[in-house]
Design a protein around this nucleic acid. Structure first.
Lengths: 356, 356
DNA sequence: ATATGTCGTGAGACCGGTCTCTTTATATAT
DNA sequence: ATATATAAAGAGACCGGTCTCACGACATAT
């Protein structure tokens, strides 16, 4: 249809300059919107650019300016509503400041995260937001700092790194939720997370490599202790990574001598899996078992009963992380800080007094 | 802590070459992994690179090779499960072929889509996957072709463009779902979509600018006609863009002289909103109203009753689009084609005979 | 002993922008 | 009329890679 033989080389400032009969420098000035040019010549160059369908090569531009206008985001799993909402918050903040976002998935695997970070630094992103899979083994993140690329951690913090981190107030959220269930009369509770079970039972909460999970567990445990309930650490279970694993975790929990009557799910995916497990075991919520889930995911409001959740204000978290990174990129002098976004308990119908 | 004064200029091949006492060309050969170099020198360069913590500048690399290794994706709304699942499919296909993915959101707005496409072309992506907000007004997409950037449309097709498109089999899916409801005895049905209502009633289905929506409507209408049911076009309703709008659409539908007894939702967001609307009106599904939703979203299986859905195999669609684009980028000779991914009806509990 | 070929390395152009420095033209001051 | 300031345009280096080409060393063929 179009006669234009299949895509020649693209049109450059030099081409436009030639067509407008000015120097390359002058054409570049009007096309790049910097420096001073007379109106007459400006018009001529613009006309030539339009005629030739000139499109600036951002790559070349980035190379000489040293800025790419891109911020890189490494998340655990885009499919998780937590992250897709966060990404929207980040994107909105970025766009507002004139930046674009490039997303990479780590699948919560340390080596994938490492190579994603490497790649993004190679692409010369102006800044990086990372959800570290683990809070130890952070060599690659120190490299980021050393490379001079601004970095903001998301959802999890690593104090030793000395960089900004935007997280939820996980300990407080866990305390609120746990206390709510204890106040309803529950004496046997369990916390269930999707984290890989790193070899058997949990002895020391300090060992948990993910700070968000650690703080939630600490909050959960502290309430149990405060209430004088037995075996608080025994009540923390990992490994709910898929439906099958979750089924087995739940089944094991409920077949114990004194089974839990209330479950706290560490994210909406785990929450959904637990809901299904209980359903398939023929148990009624909240009559047989009560539950609370982190994250106000869409499904939680349409189940029967609707699920009581901890709203983490994830969009705000993302937006804050984006804004913070932009500030860092633009050299606003700020001390490395941990920014906590508050949470709120959304009471719906999944918690009742035990043995009702 | 680190003495390294805040991020000097980054290490380049020239720096490594100097340290290894070889020419820039030679250092580039081993660092870039091309050409021939003796083992001895290779080792020397690698050692120097490691000592200096050399990181290749992908920007510079892209500029001289002309390939960026990035494919751009423009979606309607990342937060929509449809798109996040598709993005995962695309990403997986891309990663497998050695490409990375950069995502931009159009919010289903034509001008945002246009500027996103412009931006990505400026970044010299190797290829583009776009979910066109409208199937008319496609000037910017013709530009893509003219710029010589491979393009694959996603979810919606524009035959006039002459490019590949990966879509679901929307007409067939709508026919299957509608027929299923008709077979259950429904005589009054309605199709509800989130598309902006472009001024009043629908006269001509050919006017719908989104091919996926158009084909679904056509399928829906064809079944109604085939079954000899009245006013098929009157039963198509747009504008379910948020909960409030959906409430009003549903309320209006149900307050008609002969209200529909079965609803078909054009995506899982609309489905969820309809579910909530019906719930808040105190109507029981499927006793009072039956419904089917497009997309097997996670919430659809945990409601009471669970929702009968059309599974669009979105991950496969994404993967196919990614693979197709890679083939195009790598100049595999292929005719422009429309690839349809089949759908399947997942029967759960949201459809029953009317007036039960 | 000379011609031919191969291998490893170095020199330098190139990609397409930005940006500094220099030159030229015009206006204002002395 | 000459000196000085200022605005507008041009020349060319530079960013950090890739890649072509030229060159020298050594091996093999004649």
């Amino acid at each position: 249809m179009e006669d234009s033989a299949a895509s020649k080389r693209s049109v450059t400032v030099a081409d436009v300059a030639k067509a407008a009969k000015v120097s390359k420098a002058t054409a570049a000035r009007v096309l790049g919107g910097y420096g001073v040019v007379s109106d007459e010549i400006k018009d001529r160059v613009m006309a030539a650019a339009a005629a030739l369908e000139y499109r600036p090569n951002e790559l070349a531009r980035s190379m000489s300016t040293g800025r790419s206008g891109i911020i890189g985001v490494v998340v655990g799993d885009i499919e998780n509503a937590f992250f897709s909402l966060a990404v929207r918050g980040i994107s909105d903040a970025a766009r507002l400041a004139g930046y674009n976002v490039i997303i990479a998935n780590s699948g919560e695997k340390l080596d994938a995260e490492k190579s994603a970070v490497d790649l993004l630094i190679g692409k010369r992103v102006d800044g990086l937001i990372v959800t570290p899979a683990r809070c130890d083994g952070m060599g690659h993140l120190q490299d980021v700092r050393r490379a001079g690329v601004p970095l903001v951690l998301f959802d999890r913090s690593i104090p030793e790194l000395g960089v900004d981190a935007v997280t939820g107030d996980d300990r407080d959220a866990a305390i609120t939720a746990t206390r709510y269930m204890v106040d309803q009369g529950h004496r046997h509770l369990a916390y269930v997370s999707a984290m890989d079970d790193e070899g058997g039972g949990l002895i020391d909460t300090g060992r948990i490599s993910n700070s968000a999970v650690r703080e939630r567990v600490e909050g959960f445990v502290s309430v149990l202790k405060e209430a004088g309930l037995p075996h608080p650490l025994h009540s923390v279970r990992f490994g709910a990574t898929d439906q099958q694993q979750t089924d087995s975790v739940v089944r094991r929990l409920l077949s114990e001598a004194s089974p839990p009557t209330a479950l706290l799910a560490s994210d909406s995916l785990v929450g959904l899996r637990i809901f299904r497990s209980l359903q398939s075991l023929g148990l009624s919520i909240p009559r047989d078992v009560s539950m609370i889930s982190f994250l106000d995911a869409d499904w939680t409001s349409v189940t029967v009963p609707p699920i009581t959740v901890i709203d983490q204000h994830v969009y705000d978290m993302g937006k804050l992380a984006g804004e913070r990174l932009v500030a860092r990129i633009e050299r606003t002098p700020l001390a490395a800080e941990r920014l906590r976004v508050g949470t709120s308990l959304v009471v719906r119908g999944s918690v009742a007094a035990p043995g009702g």
